[in-house]
Design a protein around this nucleic acid. Structure first.
Length: 322
RNA sequence: CCCGCCUUAGCUCAAUUUGGCAGAGCGUUGGACUGUAGAUCCAAAUGUUGCUGGUUCAAGUCCGGCAGGCGGGACCA
């Protein structure tokens, strides 16, 4: 573990996030011996690059001395209409392997939601929050999280309340999630206060655009690269991806570069045929400039990203094959 | 518990008053055009018409039963 002072740690934690609520509280957390950071995931048939954004941040926290708890939120997935519990639990097993493959070490706790969410003391808090939370507020918090349903279920308002009690039950100092979690997390901060429980620092990471240019990469839309996709699948998906020439805003290829390439290495190698200028290595800044002014062709960018991802995800594929 | 309405392709919906080969748009897939994708153009695929029984030469369509959903009523001695 690298020695850093608190400000350096804060900078490292905030890097690549959209917000930390709030930084002053984070400072207090960093004074603790072994603070706890957690992220909850609904078990999903495929773990993709969007999940990897938060996992990458959890790894950073782990390196900074945090205890990492990953909630395999089986009941949450169930409440969100993802299927029957026994199926969801099988998926959770698979997901745990995926998270380990992404490089979280053996000190990481993987906790199945149902292993503690049926405790009387847990239920008691859920009921208490149910009396303190308005229907509108609970539903609004689920806007970006609920699976679309023409006939919304009561389950959808129990969901954010449980997520709140999870933070208390798991004794977390940091709650990390994608930006779609924001409203639930803010509700949780208010509600934990009301329970007299510890209020965690909330950290939100940006959402990756889908490969089709859609605002969100998601399992249900099929516009993702899974962390255990084969070389052929990665190649095919990158080739099919949305990538407008010269456009660096909302461009999924640029986003992948900024999210996974440059936090991990200085330059990106792009192989090009001689007639298009030959191979080049670009820094973050050079890549943005060259792409924006048209010197870097989308197909070349794609090839660079594709080669990077194939290599970046190689350890994951190997781990998953065992 | 009672009454009414709804259920057709992955999605949104058509299918004439009066039963006659189940369709369109979007999406998907393939091709054309671009040194990528998208856009555009061309082409293709996809159905247990919620389930079930019946009437009929013939049922998405008419009749019965069931399920799910929506709305209302009743109950509130």
């Amino acid at each position: 573990m690298v020695t850093m002072n608190i400000d350096e740690k804060i900078q490292k934690i905030e890097e690549g996030t959209l917000e930390v609520i709030d930084t002053a509280e984070l400072k207090d957390v960093l004074e603790k011996d072994q603070p706890i950071a957690y992220t909850g995931y609904e078990p999903s048939g495929k773990i993709h690059l969007g999940h990897a954004v938060t996992v990458q941040k959890l790894k950073t926290l782990q390196n900074l001395g945090f205890k990492i708890k990953i909630l395999l939120a089986d009941y949450h997935a169930y409440l969100n209409g993802k299927g029957e519990l026994d199926e969801i639990r099988k998926t959770a097993e698979y997901n745990m392997k995926c998270f380990k493959a992404l490089g979280l070490d053996e000190t990481t706790d993987f906790i199945l939601g149902s292993s503690f969410q049926l405790e009387p003391s847990y239920s008691d808090k859920v009921y208490k929050l149910a009396t303190l939370t308005t229907l509108k507020r609970a539903r609004r918090s689920m806007d970006q999280v609920s699976r679309h349903d023409d006939n919304p279920k009561v389950a959808s308002v129990i969901y954010p309340i449980m997520q709140t009690v999870d933070m208390d039950a798991l004794d977390v100092d940091i709650a990390l999630g994608g930006m779609e979690q924001r409203k639930i997390q803010m509700l949780a901060r208010e509600n934990l206060e009301k329970l007299g429980a510890n209020v965690p620092v909330c950290i939100h990471t940006p959402l990756l655009h889908g490969l089709d240019g859609d605002a969100k990469m998601s399992s249900s839309k099929g516009n993702f690269i899974a962390i255990d996709d084969s070389v052929e699948e990665i190649t095919k998906k990158i080739n099919k991806s949305y990538c407008p020439q010269g456009e660096i805003e909302d461009n999924p290829m640029i986003e992948i570069a900024e999210t996974f390439v440059y936090p991990n290495q200085e330059k990106l190698l792009i192989k090009r045929p001689e007639k298009f200028g030959g191979d080049i290595e670009l820094t973050h800044e050079e890549l943005l400039n060259d792409f924006a002014n048209g010197e870097l062709h989308p197909m070349d960018l794609k090839n660079g990203i594709k080669d990077f991802l194939i290599e970046y995800l190689a350890p994951v594929r190997e781990y998953m094959e065992e």
